[in-house]
C-alpha cells in the first residue's frame, strides 16, 4: 500500500491559494535550495527536531485513506469558503503515487499543487492534470547558478513548465526574491522574457526573502548557509513583469 510522509498540515493557510484552504506539506525534496525556509521538508525520512519545547518527530505517515478522510471532513467548509486543498512540500511530486491515491479518495474540491517543477516529465504531466491550479516555482534562469544554489539543473523544471503550459491547467509562477541571488535585474528580466506570452499563466507572485528563513536549521542539526543575507533587503521591482503585461503580486 502507498503511504505518504507528511511533515505538516496547516488549516486556514491564507497565503496558499484562493479562499480558505488546508495545506498538506509532503516530506522530501530533490532540491537543496540555500534559502529554503522549511528544511524539515528536505529529507524523505522522519527526523527529530530539537525545539525549545523538547524533541519532536517531524514526518508522519499517512495512508491515502486516512489523509482523504481527514480532508473530506473539511471539504464542505473549504468549498463554502471559495477554497480547497493545497498539496505542498518539500516537493509533492516525489510522492506522486500517494497524491494520486489521495485524490482518488477525495470528494470534489478545488485542489492546488505547489511545486518546484523538478520531476520526471511524464510523472509531472500526469499529476498536474488532476489539479485546478498549480503554483510553480521559478528561481533562476541561468543553468549554472541554478545548479550552484539548488543542487539541480533547471532544464527539467523548464521542460515541465512547457508541459504545464500545454496542459491547460492555469498556473501561477512564484519567484522567491533572495538578495543578490535570485533578486537581480538580470535574473528577473530573464524570467519575465521566458514567461511572456506563455499560455495558462495567471500571474507572477514575488515572495521576498525573509531573514527568518534560517530559523529551523539549528533544530535539525543543520547549518544555514545564507547567514550573510540576514540583514539585506530585497528590491521589489514588479514593473519588470508588469511592463510585459504580466500580472504580478508582491507578498
Amino acid at each position: 500500500m502507498t503511504t505518504g510522509l507528511v511533515f505538516d498540515i496547516k488549516e486556514f493557510a491564507v497565503h496558499d491559494g484562493p479562499g480558505i484552504r488546508t495545506t498538506v506539506f509532503l516530506k522530501g525534496c530533490p532540491l537543496n535550495c540555500a534559502w529554503c525556509h522549511s528544511p524539515e521538508g528536505k529529507d524523505r525520512a522522519p527526523q527529530i527536531m530539537h525545539t525549545l519545547r523538547g524533541d519532536r518527530t517531524v514526518g508522519k505517515a499517512y495512508t491515502p485513506e486516512a489523509l482523504a478522510a481527514y480532508l473530506n471532513s473539511q471539504i464542505p467548509i473549504l468549498t463554502a469558503n471559495e477554497g480547497g486543498v493545497t498539496f505542498s512540500g518539500g516537493e509533492p511530486l516525489m510522492q506522486a503515487a500517494f497524491i494520486h491515491a489521495t485524490l482518488d479518495r477525495l470528494d470534489p474540491v478545488h485542489v492546488l499543487l505547489d511545486t518546484s517543477g523538478f520531476a520526471d516529465g511524464p510523472v509531472f504531466a500526469q499529476l498536474v492534470r488532476r489539479f485546478d491550479l498549480v503554483y510553480f516555482d521559478l528561481k533562476l534562469m541561468d543553468p549554472v547558478t541554478h545548479l550552484a544554489h539548488t543542487g539541480v539543473s533547471n532544464a527539467p523544471i523548464l521542460d515541465n513548465l512547457r508541459r504545464l503550459s500545454a496542459s491547460r491547467v492555469p498556473f501561477v509562477i512564484r519567484v522567491p526574491l533572495v538578495p543578490t541571488i535570485t533578486d537581480t535585474n538580470e535574473n528577473l528580466s530573464a524570467i519575465a522574457r521566458y514567461l511572456h506570452g506563455l499560455p495558462g499563466l495567471v500571474r507572477v507572485d514575488l515572495l521576498p526573502y525573509n531573514p527568518l528563513a534560517g530559523a529551523k536549521y539549528p533544530m535539525l542539526g543543520m547549518a544555514y548557509p545564507l547567514h550573510e543575507l540576514e540583514h539585506r533587503s530585497v528590491t521589489l521591482q514588479p514593473e519588470i513583469f508588469s511592463d510585459k503585461g504580466i500580472q504580478v503580486q508582491c507578498h
Binding site: 525545539t51 525549545l52 519545547r53 528563513a213
Partner: peptide, 17 residues
C-alpha cells in the same frame, strides 16, 4: 507566527529569531 511562507510556534524559535 507567520515567518516566511510557513507558520511556526513562536516559542519554538530560538531567541534571536
Amino acid at each position: 507566527v507567520r515567518v516566511w511562507g510557513w507558520s511556526g510556534y513562536f516559542c519554538e524559535l530560538s531567541p534571536e529569531y
